[in-house]
């Protein structure tokens, strides 16, 4: 029964390690890194920031919540995607309400 005992001990250590990491994450999330979070919120509020400064190569990846839909194509709809991060971050359609409507010859929409 040596191997099974050894295996159970090793698995127990792994489960314990993972549980500790997850508990650490949970408590770190609960306390919310309060010191920096307050500072970050102050920054966002004062400067009126709307996006993370994550990918700065294109407008729509630097400010995904603010970019217009055409900026994904840069110059014209249907042109090839220029930037690698464009495949990670798509433009947000928030705030656009226009629609394409089709009107039949009888006049009803």
């Amino acid at each position: 029964m040596v191997k099974s005992t050894l295996y159970l001990i090793c698995s127990g250590i792994l489960i314990l390690s993972l549980s500790m990491l997850l508990l650490f994450s949970h408590f770190s999330q609960a306390t919310g890194d309060t010191e920096n979070l307050a500072g970050k919120r102050q920054l966002v509020s004062y400067l009126g920031l709307t996006d993370l400064s994550l990918c700065s190569e294109a407008r729509y990846t630097r400010h995904p919540s603010q970019a217009d839909l055409f900026s994904a194509f840069q110059d014209f709809p249907g042109s090839f995607e220029h930037f690698p991060t464009g495949s990670m971050i798509s433009p947000s359609p928030a705030g656009f309400f226009s629609r394409v409507r089709v009107s039949s010859q009888s006049g009803s929409e």
């Binding site: 949970h26 400064s53 994550l54 990918c55 930037f83 991060t85 464009g86």
Partner: peptide
């Protein structure tokens, strides 16, 4: 993958969130 062609990519330390 996130960096792409960005020259100014932030060096960040993420808070563990699961």
């Amino acid at each position: 993958l996130l960096k792409g062609w960005s020259v100014l990519f932030p060096a960040f330390q993420l808070s563990p969130v699961v």
